[in-house]
């Protein structure tokens, strides 16, 4: 495992920790899109279908369990926790995420490396992950006061896939047997590009020591 991949995973983990910290300590999920969280839970379920059958490393298995467990605990907090669920701003979270699911499923059935159940589900998870942040980005744009934890959450999430891209370049150059997964690369690039606008305002607000606010 190279440093880019590891750093990417840690960023991903950090984003989840930051979000859980906000929810657990502040008992608030203000500004967080439930729809994005639902999409991520679905992404993890479909991608980690091999969790009990395909052992790669202890690190791999533990991380999969952590991502699945955190995704479901976030959903539980936002939907069922009596205090947290009242801070969820349903009216601002209006993205039609079912269309994303449908579009990604159709695309996965059409464009994949191999036509098997597991491979199509894996491909679906890759496509869905690329666009899962959209409801969250729309919600951020509508929120006037984005708190630090929410801003950092999205920032870490964007950095994670960016680092994965460096990891793919590194593996492409160093591993003879590394398959040319162009499908993952294109999706990963789109996923990272979606954050470009957000990154710009995040860095700007950080440099100017101002509160983060996205233009409407």
């Amino acid at each position: 495992m190279n440093i880019f991949r590891f750093a990417g995973d840690m960023m991903h983990l950090l984003s989840v920790v930051v979000l859980l910290l906000k929810i657990h300590k502040m008992k608030s999920c203000a500004g967080i899109s439930l729809k994005t969280q639902e999409l991520y839970a679905l992404v993890f379920i479909c991608r980690y279908l091999d969790i009990f059958t395909g052992f790669i490393s202890l690190y791999n298995t533990i991380m999969k369990i952590v991502f699945l467990a955190s995704a479901f605990s976030i959903l539980w907090y936002m939907r069922s926790h009596k205090v947290v669920r009242q801070t969820y701003d349903k009216d601002q979270d209006t993205f039609r995420h079912y269309f994303l699911i449908l579009a990604c499923m159709v695309l996965a059935l059409l464009v994949h490396h191999k036509f098997t159940f597991r491979e199509v589900m894996w491909t679906f998870s890759i496509y869905l992950e690329a666009v899962a942040i959209l409801p969250q980005l729309v919600m951020l744009q509508r929120t006037r006061n984005i708190d630090n934890l929410t801003g950092n959450y999205v920032f870490f999430l964007g950095t994670y896939r960016g680092l994965y891209m460096l990891n793919w370049v590194y593996r492409y150059l160093t591993e003879v047997h590394y398959h040319h997964r162009w499908l993952t690369w294109i999706s990963g690039f789109i996923q990272t590009a979606l954050y470009a606008d957000f990154f710009y305002y995040y860095v700007k607000s950080w440099r100017n020591n101002e509160k983060l606010q996205l233009p409407a």
């Binding site: 995973d9 091999d50 395909g54 790669i56 490393s57 991380m63 894996w122 398959h179």
Partner: peptide, 10 residues
Amino acid sequence: ESTYEPKDEL
């Protein structure tokens, strides 16, 4: 091309 390709990324 091998038929089984382990997906070692998360």
